[in-house]
Design a protein around this nucleic acid. Sequence first.
DNA 1: TGCAGTGTTGCTTC
DNA 2: CGAAGCAACACTGC
Length: 289
Amino acid sequence: MPELPEVETTINGLKTKVLSRTFVDVWSDWKKTIKKPKDFEQFKKELKGKKIKNIWRRAKNIIFDLSDNYSILVHQKMTGHLLYGTWNMEHGIWIPVGKGPLNDPYNRFLHLIFFFDNGKMMALSDVRKFAKVELWKTEELKKELDKIGPEPLEKGFTFEKFEEALKNKKGRIKQILMNPEVIAGIGNIYASEILWQAKIHPEKNVAKLNGKELESIYEATKRVLEIAVKLGGESFSDYRKPDGTKGDFDSERRVYKREGQKCARCGTKIKRIKFGGRSAFFCPVCQKL
DNA sequence: TGCAGTGTTGCTTC
DNA sequence: CGAAGCAACACTGC
């Protein structure tokens, strides 16, 4: 999906709804989403009867800890988002029960539905079908997740930790920020936003950043992500919260997808360049190379 | 009609 | 060997 703030928002929304619920069934019309175990019937068999004990986030992964020491990992990739509600199958299409946000066009692409013991459902809407779902033994999954870089919103993420993570790294700062092995959870939107806040050019070589610049990137990273979580994530793409509504980060979005618009700081036209296969948005005047 | 797109991995090229 | 580029996954919206 979407990035750290959107995943965090999804978890916050689900926590109040699905904690302590037990899975009674699963439906899918795109079984390739289930990567582990690969056989969908096997997945269903193993999942049925398991209870959700905890929900948490690591990088952009959503993890449901279940009874019997199992865990589900959901990665929403580009367009996936988890919704909570009730749907009825009518003429081969899932129709949301009741009106409102669940009728949003982006909430139509349901390819996987979990059924709970209270009659409610958790659905994965995913236009591009890149999302993945895996069932793990909790201990094995934890080992896998240890390979990911530090969590920027955790208390232990000090400036020293940040410096350490960037030490000996080569390349352009934006790509380093987006590398999950360096720092967890930052993607294309927030990398651009963070660097605008920090007044650093996205192509600046990491090795050439001085202490003061590193510090402003560190501060901006925490600040931008915290604000985005508070606002419930972005709202210009097809990301939706579990209740189907949009986040409110748009009021804080300064550069991403704002090519040609005026920089909020100096009025210069925002530029878009492409490297590393992705678009970077920035102000060519107040972000220093 | 053509292109760009929130993520990640793995292959190819230099 | 490392860095960088690119394809793959699949589909919609502009």
